[in-house]
Design a protein around this nucleic acid. Structure first.
Lengths: 249, 249
DNA sequence: GCCGGGTGCTAACACAGGTTGGTGAAAGCG
DNA sequence: CGCTTTCACCAACCTGTGTTAGCACCCGGC
C-alpha cells in the first residue's frame, strides 16, 4: 500500500480491498509542483479535491499589506475539504513548500466514492473533521500560548501527524520550512522564532537542521506545551500513534 | 419562515418548500440553555448536530492551566459540523453565552436529509465550509493583526453574519460578551481589550453598550482591519449582504 | 436595604516579542 | 568564477501588550 491517504485512514478504520482500490484509482491525476509553487491560489475557481501524495504543502492567506499567515500544513495523505467544489472561489491559497506530488480528485469521483462506499465515506469525513480540529487547535496555539509553548506544540503535532502516515523516523520527521515560514505559521517574527528555536535546543528538547526535526525529549516537549493529542482523533483502540510505540528516547 | 438556518441558507441557494419543511421538522428537539451553561463539553460523547435557534453561543477550548480560547461564535442559524457524530468524543466545548435555544438534529435525521434532498445538502455543506473559512480567518486575525485591527475585524464579521440571518438593526447587532470573553476570543488580555474598545470609540468607529454593538463607520472599520468578506461566501449574485443595502450610516 | 460578586474602567509598571540593521555561510546562477 | 540571493543568526533598541491592583457601579440575593 503506497498511498499515504490509505495509511492515514487506517488510523480510523479498516478499509476493504475494494475501497482501497477505489481510492487508488481516483488518485491517478497527479501533478508535480515545484518548491514554493502555488497548487491553487486565492481567488481561483475551486476545482477537484487536492490530495498531497508526497512532499509538504500549506494553506495560507495574505493580507492586502503583504502579511502572510499559514493556516494549515499538509503532510502526505492530507486532503483538502471533501466539499470544496461547492464554493465558487478559493478564499485562500494552497502552496507547495518543497517539490510535491498532488493528486486532484474530481468532484464526480468524490461523489461516486461517497455514494458507493459507506465505510470509506466515514473515514474521509473523519479526516476532514480532524483537519478542522487541527485548525481550532492552531487558534488556541496562537491565541493562548507563548512563543516557546507555541513552537513546541507545533512540533509535537507534526511528529504525531507524520507518525500517523508512517513517515517518521523514530522521533524525527522532515520539516522543510524556513524560519520565516515558521514565523508565518506561529504568528511570530522570524527573529523571535530564531530565539525560540535556540532556547529549545539549549534545553536539549529538539534539533532542527537540514530540514529534519528531531525531538529529543517528547515527554518534556508535550508537558511544556500542554500538548494533548486528543484533537487528532487517532484510533482510541490503539492509543499510541503508529510507527513508534516507545516515546521519549 | 422563522428558522434562522433557513434564512442563512437563502444566502447560498433557494430551497423548495419540501426542503424547508424537512429542515423545520428536524429542528423540533429544542432545549433551552441558561447563560454560561455548556451545551456540550470537551470529552463528552458526540451526539446529534447542534443548531442554534436563538441566543448566542461559542466553541471554546481550555488548557490544563485554565487559559481559555474561544474558537468560534454561533449566531442563530449556525450549525456545528454536519458530521460530528463520526468522532467519538468532543475535543472542545460548546457553551451558551446568553440564554439560548438549541435544536439537536439526530444523526439519523441528518443522514436522511442528505440522502433525500440534494439542493439542501449542498446548502448545508456550504454552511459548514463557511464555518471552516471563518476559523481560518480567525487564525489570520490572531496571528497577524494587532489588537485594534483584530477587534475591528471581529466586529465587521459579526455584523455581516447577523445581517446574513436578518438579525441586525441597521449597523447594529447584539454582542452579549464581557470584555473578558472578548479577550479570550481575540487572544488579548481583558485590560487591553478595554483599551482597544476605547480607542475604537474615541475614533467614533463603534459604540458598544448594553450588549449591543453599533458600527458607526463600517467603511473605515473595514479599511482599518483589512476586512474582506469573501471568506463568508455570501451570495455572489447579490454582493451586498442581506437586510441592509446601504452601508456606512 | 445591605452585601457580595461580576463587570467596566484606569494607572503604573514589566516584559515578551517586534524592529532594524547587520554578519557570514551556503546555494543557485550567468 | 564571481555575483546575487537566501538563510540562520545576532545585538541593540523599542513598543504593544500583559500584569497587578484598585475603584466605582450595577444587580441579584437575602
Amino acid at each position: 500500500m503506497n498511498n499515504p491517504l490509505l495509511r492515514k485512514l487506517a488510523n480510523f478504520t479498516q478499509l476493504s480491498e475494494d475501497e482501497s482500490n477505489a481510492v487508488n484509482e481516483c488518485s491517478q491525476d497527479v501533478r508535480e509542483f515545484a518548491a514554493r509553487e502555488d497548487v491553487i491560489s486565492q481567488g481561483d475557481r475551486t476545482g477537484g479535491v487536492k490530495l498531497l501524495l508526497d512532499g509538504f504543502a500549506c494553506r495560507y492567506k495574505v493580507l492586502e499589506d503583504g502579511r502572510r499567515q499559514i493556516v494549515a500544513y499538509f503532510v502526505p495523505g492530507d486532503l483538502c475539504d471533501l466539499r470544496v467544489f461547492i464554493l465558487k472561489r478559493m478564499d485562500h491559497s494552497i502552496g507547495a513548500v518543497v517539490a510535491s506530488k498532488v493528486a486532484t480528485i474530481s468532484p464526480e469521483n468524490i461523489l461516486r466514492l461517497t455514494h458507493t462506499y459507506p465505510t470509506l465515506t466515514r473515514a474521509l469525513w473523519w479526516s476532514t473533521l480532524v483537519e478542522e480540529a487541527i485548525a481550532r487547535e492552531w487558534l488556541v496555539n496562537v491565541g493562548q500560548r507563548d512563543a516557546l509553548e507555541r513552537t513546541a506544540h507545533l512540533f509535537c503535532e507534526l511528529l504525531y501527524r507524520f507518525r500517523a502516515v508512517g513517515l517518521n523516523q523514530g522521533n524525527s520527521c522532515t520539516l522543510p520550512l524556513t524560519q520565516v515560514e515558521l514565523a508565518e505559521t506561529l504568528g511570530l517574527s522570524s527573529v523571535h522564532v530564531n530565539r525560540t528555536l535556540q532556547e529549545l535546543r539549549r534545553r536539549n528538547l529538539i534539533t532542527l537542521e537540514g530540514g529534519t526535526l528531531t525531538i529529543q525529549d517528547l515527554d518534556e516537549l508535550k508537558a511544556l506545551s500542554f500538548f494533548n493529542p486528543d484533537y487528532l482523533h487517532l484510533d482510541y483502540g490503539n492509543d499510541k500513534p503508529r510507527g513508534e510505540e516507545r516515546e521519549g528516547n
